[in-house]
């Protein structure tokens, strides 16, 4: 009896050990890629990877298998810096890929010029989620600073994604500042507008996921600021009919960037397949998959086919409005920055 139990345990241990070893590459004719990505791209790559693997097999006869890692964009970049062996990174913004260059030197400084469209094959933007029927008639950013409107957005100090909500509001205010103001006056106008918006935020959640719960499940607030792709995913996953999307007149262009990690593909001998993989994102098939998973495709023809899903709006970039994400980070979100100052005052 006792011996039987012991053998059983040993057997289970051996089985799990064997299973743990089963994932490695066997032989010349197979190759694997690790794509280190951020949270909202899971379904996109789940759909896209097998299609590329099939195309790669037809072209080269090589069996390609994928390993995916998802997490917060900043912490994923940190993991690559600390040694996570990513052949390619597909992160939320260029700032995080820059960090991999600056802190670990795994790819060159000019990485962003190596692929078209700033190495961002698909884009997204910040839109509004409102309750079905839009009872408060929310149309544009000005409606968010109306007294009595409750806005749900996470804390931009702790949530990387939420910084885009903040910058979108600030940028909108800069574009709509009265013409007779000088640069300082325009900034003051934008500061006042953004401060009023955040004064309408009843709960400043720590992360995007928690804020989604606050808005959708706990039904707190009138407007939820969200990345467009995540808003569509949330509607789709949580059941349509509760909330709907309002696209404002102006918003910020979010450019999730992709890059081959040179130091790692050269060591693992995967450069050719890694480059082909990222180029596949720019093909019509890749663009169509991106659109189907709620990212705005760069290809105008594909975008045209998804017009109903992606209404046109004016988009500004972080570079033209804030001088880059690093600069925006320094001015607005670092300790003692713009956000801290007006948030302290409002307490």
């Amino acid at each position: 009896m006792k011996r039987g139990l012991r053998c059983g345990l040993l057997g289970a241990l051996c089985a799990s050990l064997l299973a743990g070893c089963g994932g490695s590459d066997d032989g010349e004719n197979s190759i694997s890629l690790l794509n280190v990505s951020y949270d909202p791209t899971r379904e996109l790559y789940q759909d896209l990877n097998p299609r590329f693997a099939e195309a790669w097999y037809r072209e080269t006869g090589q069996n390609l298998s994928f390993r995916m890692s998802h997490g917060g964009s900043g912490s994923q970049a940190r993991a690559v810096i600390d040694g996570l062996e990513a052949d390619v990174v597909t992160l939320a913004l260029s700032f995080d890929v820059d960090a991999i260059h600056q802190r670990a030197g795994l790819l060159p400084a000019d990485w962003q010029q190596r692929l078209p469209d700033n190495s961002a094959p698909y884009t997204s933007t910040i839109v509004f989620l409102v309750r079905t029927g839009n009872p408060l008639n929310i149309r544009d950013w000005d409606d968010l600073v109306r007294p009595g409107v409750q806005v749900i957005t996470p804390n931009p100090k702790t949530s990387g994604g939420a910084r885009w909500n903040y910058l979108a509001a600030w940028g909108y205010a800069l574009l709509n500042a009265p013409d007779d103001l000088d640069e300082e006056g325009r900034q003051a106008y934008a500061r006042d507008f953004t401060a009023r918006l955040y004064a309408n935020v009843p709960i400043l959640d720590r992360a995007a996921r928690a804020a989604t719960n606050t808005f959708v499940q706990r039904r707190i607030g009138d407007v939820f600021l969200s990345w467009e792709n995540e808003a569509m995913l949330a509607i789709n996953e949580l059941g349509p009919g509760q909330v709907e999307i309002v696209v404002p007149s102006v918003s910020i262009l979010a450019e999730p960037t992709v890059a081959v990690v040179d130091a790692i593909v050269d060591r693992r001998g995967t450069r050719a397949v890694a480059e082909a993989y990222l180029n596949f994102l720019y093909t019509e098939e890749g663009q169509e998959l991106a659109a189907r998973h709620y990212f705005r495709p760069r290809n105008a023809e594909v975008l045209g086919r998804f017009r109903d899903q992606f209404p046109p709006l004016n988009l500004f970039t972080v570079d033209e409005m804030f001088g880059g994400f690093g600069e925006a980070q320094r001015v607005h979100f670092d300790d003692g920055g713009e956000f801290d100052r007006f948030f302290e005052r409002s307490r």
Partner: peptide
């Protein structure tokens, strides 16, 4: 959770 989360790398299946 905590310690493992930091060192995991979150690679699916692995």
């Amino acid at each position: 959770f905590g310690a493992v989360s930091v060192v995991s790398g979150h690679i699916r299946h692995q």
